[in-house]
Nucleic acid binder design. Structure first.
Lengths: 121, 121
DNA sequence: ACTCGCCGACTACAAGTGTAGCCGACGCAG
DNA sequence: CTGCGTCGGCTACACTTGTAGTCGGCGAGT
């Protein structure tokens, strides 16, 4: 249910890739393009804990952070939000949309067809 | 390229449905659940103009507002953003995601299959 | 010509987000 | 035992978003 900002998401991605990590380790792993200071990473981690999407365990005087939500769950939540916001909750118009915008390669089409076939009764 | 918030989007939806409209008309048409004051709608319209996603024409001493971007373009932009943020820019994992979460009805499956078939060379 | 109401402009303010500095405390190297 | 570096916590500040109030001016009715 919690909202995660773009910058915060970068931290989540690190933790989803590897956990538990100390704040310093997270900082090392955050994409360099961000050009973040160590402070920034620490703030992100605090806020994410406050939101309950990151958990930590104390190890000596450091914290070891881990994600408290699954990436899958978050992705599903965000997908649902977009669908509701823009497509009346239906997936078909979204696919149609992307098709019209050339975001669908022939390979995508094959894959999705296979996927759908597997889903049929 | 511009970011539109949730509340702002409600105004855009009104204008996408009917335009041009005066601020007062927009206010009338915004979903009542929002419980907005007239002021709020006026603020939204100013901000949306500042962002360049809404245009206006002066009519006497009132403004007639119209959307300056297509709903389609915006939907495509937001879809792309989600895909990039969560699914490596690929649609297949998104569909797989939604399938696993029961957001796909048999009817959706049929529709999308038909859609994809039409796209094939 | 005067007044009244409506209009956009401007102002306000709290919450959230991006970014970062400073500080007191704790532990390790001499 | 002492100093120094490291760690989380706290503070800061600008910008965005949601929500709304006030105000000066223009136009319509009398």
């Amino acid at each position: 249910m919690e909202r995660i900002g773009d910058a915060e998401l970068a931290v989540m991605e690190v933790l989803w890739g590897e956990a538990p990590l100390t704040a310093a380790e997270v900082a090392e792993r955050v994409p360099a393009e961000r050009g973040w200071s160590a402070s920034t990473v620490k703030t992100m981690l605090s806020r994410l804990s406050a939101k309950g999407v990151v958990a930590y365990r104390e190890e000596g005087r450091r914290y070891l952070y881990s994600p408290a939500i699954d990436r899958e769950d978050y992705a599903a939540q965000e997908s649902g939000r977009l669908l509701d916001r823009m497509f009346g909750g239906r997936l078909t118009p979204l696919v149609a949309q992307l098709a019209r915008r050339d975001r669908l390669s022939p390979r995508d089409i094959e894959e999705i067809e296979a996927l759908l076939k597997a889903l049929k009764p």
